[in-house]
Design a binder for these strands. Sequence first.
DNA 1: AACACAAGCGCAACCGGTTGCCTGAAATCA
DNA 2: TGATTTCAGGCAACCGGTTGCGCTTGTGTT
Lengths: 336, 336
Amino acid sequence: MQNKIPTIQEIARLLKLSKSTVSRALRNHPAIGLRTTQQVQKLAKELNYEPNQLAISFSKRKSMSIGVIVSSLDPYFHRAVFGIEDCAYANNYSVLISQTRDEYDIEVKVLETMRKQRVDGIVASISRNAPDIRHFEKCRQYNIPVVFFDRVPDVAGINSVWCRLDISTIELVSYLASKGHEHIALINGPVSLPIRNERLKGYYEGLEKNKLPVYEHFVKTADLSTVGTYEAMDALLSHRIKPTAIITFNDYMSLDAMHYLRKVKPGRYSDIDFVTYSSLPTTRYLDRPPLAYVDQFPYEQGKLATEVLFRQLNGLAKAEIMPPENLVIESRLVVY
Amino acid sequence: MQNKIPTIQEIARLLKLSKSTVSRALRNHPAIGLRTTQQVQKLAKELNYEPNQLAISFSKRKSMSIGVIVSSLDPYFHRAVFGIEDCAYANNYSVLISQTRDEYDIEVKVLETMRKQRVDGIVASISRNAPDIRHFEKCRQYNIPVVFFDRVPDVAGINSVWCRLDISTIELVSYLASKGHEHIALINGPVSLPIRNERLKGYYEGLEKNKLPVYEHFVKTADLSTVGTYEAMDALLSHRIKPTAIITFNDYMSLDAMHYLRKVKPGRYSDIDFVTYSSLPTTRYLDRPPLAYVDQFPYEQGKLATEVLFRQLNGLAKAEIMPPENLVIESRLVVY
DNA sequence: AACACAAGCGCAACCGGTTGCCTGAAATCA
DNA sequence: TGATTTCAGGCAACCGGTTGCGCTTGTGTT
């Protein structure tokens, strides 16, 4: 009834060898003779032997796994996860993914779980309402390197990979200007997301570069809810001077804003152009999609962050002192 | 420099106790006195002791984790994962997610990894081109129960949770009929997905129920690529009798089909109505979204599948003989 | 023939917990 | 007061691998 799971000891018993010999033979250790090695490997295959990763991890005090913390596996971070997986798998590591649903409490909890699971390293995009990164401190004690990506906390001494948006935002404004737009609005994300400042900076610089007038009421802040976007749109359109183009924080916001125009103000403002950041794969199916978007390369960010992580891990293994790495990649304006 | 990670032995040493006592004290074992228990727990807290889950799993031969295998973490399976997580976390289990990218080879590989990691159970939606489920056989030897969901292999003796679509498909056809449609086409998914048959069955029964004519050329098969959908649309429209409504396999296919009409046959056929299965959260933002969709309740499927898994696990723990469970939930027609 | 050396393998400790069983002392009972 | 039970905690094996070191052999050298 009960199928036995083959172990190294079992193989050793059958071949009348010691388990250390079997262990080494399975890994082609040079100290083991060819005949013995082949014998062991043959029997291992016959028995369908599969090493117990739990035992290996425990024994080596290395779990061969990295943790990934993201707010949600939405299409954006999903692409990032692909980058992380590709890099991790190439290094024979497995990946433990946790979603925080943008809640600080959950972030603290999953981090604790990952520590207990003894992940070797962590790639994280912090949740929106995390007041600080104290909860990551303990990872230092456990010698678990952490690389932040995309949403990067604004503190020194950490590893980080993110995508600067200011230059692309200037290009974005210039692009709109080249289309004849003079009244360009920006609906930005919540102040808790540092990345919003890049957008703001690029927006103003873009206006200046194109000698466009600056209207303070053209800059709105919205949380990322549908209602929040509606309110921002309301506010935007309540002034005498209306925007002819709107830059939104991301695709979801664009969709909500466009939806607002269609449902709440049907007919009017149908000529407002939208541009946005990141991109849902399905946005291009809209009848009138945003004219352009800024690609933040989530796949590359994930991949780079994981590469940084492995460099840190290798340094750790050699007991080298690893200075933190801070990588910034350039976003890119994509016109549909 | 090197921060020590506190262990049970360390606590034992400091308190001059044996590690077995500390182990028991930490878990409030009744055989340990109140004073000792409090002392141990106090020191554990002071030292920031966090149990080594690796050691626990190894020692108990239970990893307290379940594996999730899905083709991709697209919005559909993403919702399923939420259901799985909710159930797993409620049982103090952690979740190991792997994407197969719908490739059999990867599925085999991630399954092997999960076995090596000694996950306690697996929730899986098989990849599209998996010829069989032989690769899951070995899980039996390892006593790892498997619950298939959504995409369920058509074999006996397995645990499964899926969503029947035939009845809702009849309703879907009836709905279209009530809207005056008489020429209803169906673009189905690839034959490798068993769930396609449900759609076909419901389609024919729906036509019959509404006394609508059956045109064989109204039923097309497409792989799930954009090109495949375009070809199916081409074929559909190449006949004398054109459909006035089209049922598509899923949202992506709807989007492609609609896109085809707009780009390849602009102006014509703009009155064709679409209905579909599942639903991307962003579909409703289309100017002219599908009229209706069949909800397959991925969250509930994931949750139910995980509940089945835990029942199997509990049975295993008590060495009971657990008959396989096969749950079928009803899909639901949702009109926008 | 005596010795050095390397190849091939085994011994035993260790990783950090869990657990069955045993022991010593205090408390209860006859 | 002696015997028995209960309570509190310790001992040691175990989970399945890895690894430093030591012990046999056989071979080559001088």
